[in-house]
Computed example of a mutant assay.
Amino acid sequence: MPMPRSRVGRLSIGAGLVAGGCLGFLPILGFWMAPLGLIVLSHDLAFVRRRRRKLAVWWSRRRRN
């Protein structure tokens, strides 16, 4: 699924997914939405991108050992 070209579109989709992930106990919404929203937000927000990169480095080191 292609990402929207506008920054506002990406931010609104990412924020909506994170908000929907917080309501994961409801039937249609799920906890899977929060990490997906953070990935979408990491394209535009530097502090989310740094956290995602640290997690990726930690995960690769963990898998290597």
Rank of each mutant, 00 (worst) to 15 (best):
I13V: 15
F25R: 06
L38D: 00
S42A: 15
R50T: 14
W32P: 02
L17S: 06
R63M: 12
G24W: 08
L29I: 15
S12W: 07
H43F: 13
P2C: 08
R10H: 07
A34S: 10
R5E: 01
I39L: 15
R49M: 04
L41Q: 05
R62I: 11
G20E: 08
R49T: 02
L23V: 12
F31W: 15
G21N: 03
L23E: 11
G24A: 13
W58S: 09
L11D: 02
P27D: 11
F47C: 02
N65A: 05
P27I: 10
L26S: 11
S42D: 07
R49H: 02
R7K: 06
P4R: 06
V57W: 10
A56E: 07
R61E: 09
R61Y: 05
G37V: 01
W58V: 12
W32N: 06
A19C: 04
L11F: 02
R50M: 10
V40S: 01
L55F: 12
R61G: 09
G30A: 11
S6N: 08
L11R: 04
D44H: 08
R51E: 06
G20C: 13
W32D: 08
G21Q: 07
L23H: 12
H43M: 08
N65T: 02
R5S: 09
M33I: 02
V57G: 08
L17C: 13
P35Q: 15
A19Y: 05
R63N: 10
M3V: 07
L36Q: 07
P27Y: 10
